[in-house]
């Protein structure tokens, strides 16, 4: 457990540094690469926390597709003039970010320890029900898939509809009648 915690601490530190680099680097291309590194770090963190489904999503979407979409977007823009490496700091924005992060950090103390056996998620009756009945009822070995596609199938249909609606809306806004 301690080795996992140490690795997790290293990975999260890497992610925070990458996030800071993404914020402060002036060149957008550098910022995008730093953002991809951040997503990669978070994906590794999800693996360490034994959530491979989320890790796969984070790696494919965060570090993969999003990076590519950012790249094709900035290919249409120009580089900022000047030789400065870092972006100037906006102190009003910093104040808002500090306020928000400070508020969120106050909740950290009430979270259960990483991997704790008596975390509410592990002891909840709902979790127990899914873990005991997902396979006999659906024949699906991945309980996450069983929840997403069977027990919460209606929610997932809603999500799929949102993806279609968002896609159609964005494509209409981009005015690409020639290719949708």
């Amino acid at each position: 457990m301690t080795t996992v915690s140490t690795t997790l601490a290293i990975v999260l530190t890497f992610s925070v540094l990458a996030a800071l680099a993404a914020i402060f680097l002036r060149d957008v291309l550098n910022a995008i690469i730093a953002f991809a590194a951040f997503s990669f770090g978070i994906a590794v963190a999800w693996i360490l926390l034994a959530a491979p489904d989320v890790a796969l999503t984070e790696a494919a979407v965060g570090a993969g597709i999003t990076t590519v979409l950012f790249l094709v977007t900035i290919a249409k823009t120009v580089r900022p003039s000047g030789e400065r490496l870092l972006e100037a700091v906006e102190w009003r924005s910093v104040a808002i970010v500090v306020l928000l992060v400070g508020t969120l950090l106050t909740t950290v103390r009430s979270l259960p320890a990483v991997g704790s056996a008596d975390a509410p998620v592990a002891t909840s009756r709902v979790t127990e029900y899914y873990l005991q009945n997902a396979y006999p009822e659906t024949g699906v070995e991945n309980a996450v898939t069983a929840v997403l596609a069977a027990y919460r199938g209606f929610d997932t249909l809603g999500e799929a509809t949102v993806v279609i609606a968002a896609g159609v809306a964005v494509l209409l806004v981009l005015r690409q009648e020639a290719y949708v």
Binding site: I65, V68, L69, V72, T73, A75, K76, T156, A160, V163, I164, A166, G167, V170, L171, V173, L174, R175, Q176, Y179, V180
Partner: peptide
């Protein structure tokens, strides 16, 4: 079905962004 939706939307999004006429 979800895979078809997601891949289709992402592919169209990529080509729309890359063509850049709207910009």
């Amino acid at each position: 079905a979800i895979g078809a939706i997601v891949s289709g939307v992402l592919i169209s999004l990529f080509f729309s962004l890359a063509s850049g006429d709207f910009l």
